[in-house]
Simulated scan of single mutants.
Amino acid sequence: MSLMKRMSLIFRSKANTALDRAEDPRETLDYSYQRQLDLLSKVRRGVADVATSRKRIELQIAQLQQQADKLQGQAEKSIQMNREDLAREALTRKSALGGQIEDLKTQHAQLQGEEEKLTLAQQRLQAKVESFRTRKETIKATYTAAEAQTRINEAMSGIGEEMGDVGMAIQRAEDKTANMQARAGAIDELIASGALDDASAINRGDDISRELEAMSSQADVEAELARMKGLSSSPQPDAIEAPASGDILADSGQGEQQAVTPERKDGQA
């Protein structure tokens, strides 16, 4: 097998596989049903056209028959009037019309037979289309149910792509959780053994230092309290008694009288 043939075979096989994956049987059935409806519509139009032609020929036959009857009457009247020449002419024309009428009747019979055939074909095609439509809907319903069942089974078994992604995410979360728990346990063991210092206990000192700091703080509090008690118990200086307001007014009145008396004495002198 040559290289080009192998490439052509591979290409056709790949294309066939891709088409099989992309093909939806429901869409294919709908398309086939639509084509059958189009064909049925064409057959119906054909039947209508044949029936129209048949009706037109019937009208022509009726018109020619009226003309032939008229010529027959004219021929009879011409014989009564001893006009044999006119009667002969009328009968000649009637004979020509008779030939046309026979030709039209032949065409009418052919069209009528064609119409019957097309009508029968239309009825058969109509029955096939209806049968195909029923079968199409049944196949579509079965395919849809099978597709839904397949998706449900894939989801339940975890084979589907979505469920596979969810399962992988859960597995990763469980692995990370286990790693974090192991890391936390290891750090707790190191802190308990003294290999690592607790960051919360930095700059806090040991137990003895904390005890001494507490005692020093308590001693400072006691000393401050004793100093405040000593200040509150020391003697206060005697308060200076203020003179009564009446005495102050009396003293000021006597001074004013003593000042006025010498002035009077000077006036009298």
Rank of each mutant, 00 (worst) to 15 (best):
A226P: 01
N203I: 07
L71H: 00
A96T: 11
D30W: 08
E23P: 02
R56P: 00
A269F: 01
T134G: 03
A51N: 06
D266K: 01
I101D: 03
P262I: 01
D247C: 10
Q218R: 03
Q60F: 03
Q149F: 06
Q218G: 05
M215L: 12
A68H: 07
E154Y: 02
L231E: 11
L231W: 01
G158Y: 07
T134C: 06
D85I: 03
A226E: 06
E174A: 14
D238M: 11
P243Y: 04
R88V: 06
Q110S: 09
S209L: 12
D251G: 11
A22T: 05
K42G: 01
R183K: 15
E263R: 08
E224S: 07
G167H: 15
M228G: 09
L29G: 00
L40C: 02
A201S: 14
D38N: 02
L3Y: 13
K140R: 05
I139W: 11
I248N: 06
L225H: 06
I61F: 01
A96V: 12
D30Y: 09
D49K: 07
E241G: 07
L225N: 03
A223I: 11
G246A: 10
Q268L: 12
E84H: 15
N179E: 15
M7I: 00
K55M: 12
S193I: 05
E116W: 01
E102I: 13
E213D: 06
D69S: 05
R151E: 15
L29K: 00
E130N: 14
A182E: 11
S157K: 05
D251C: 09
R44V: 06
Q65D: 13
A51W: 00
Q112S: 15
S252P: 01
A169E: 15
T28K: 06
E241N: 10
A178L: 13
Q65T: 12
E137D: 08
Y31C: 07
E162R: 14
L3G: 05
K140M: 04
E130R: 14
D197C: 06
L9S: 13
Q63D: 07
K5I: 08
G73Q: 05
G185D: 13
A68G: 10
S53I: 02
D206P: 01
L29Y: 00
I240A: 13
E102W: 09
D266C: 02
I61W: 00
V260S: 03
K265M: 05
T144G: 00
A226T: 02
K140H: 03
A155L: 15
T106N: 14
L39G: 04
L64W: 10
V166E: 13
Q126C: 04
G98L: 10
R6S: 06
S32D: 11
A178R: 10
S245T: 04
A186Q: 14
I57V: 10
A127N: 03
D197V: 02
K42T: 03
D175P: 11
Q72V: 09
G246Q: 05
K265A: 04
E161C: 13
A62Y: 09
A15P: 00
L19M: 09
I187C: 10
Q254S: 09
E27Y: 10
E115Q: 08
D69H: 04
G98V: 05
K136L: 04
M228I: 09
R227D: 08
R227P: 00
V47I: 08
L212H: 12
L37D: 01
R172Y: 13
T261Q: 06
K5A: 10
L86R: 02
A109C: 14
D103H: 12
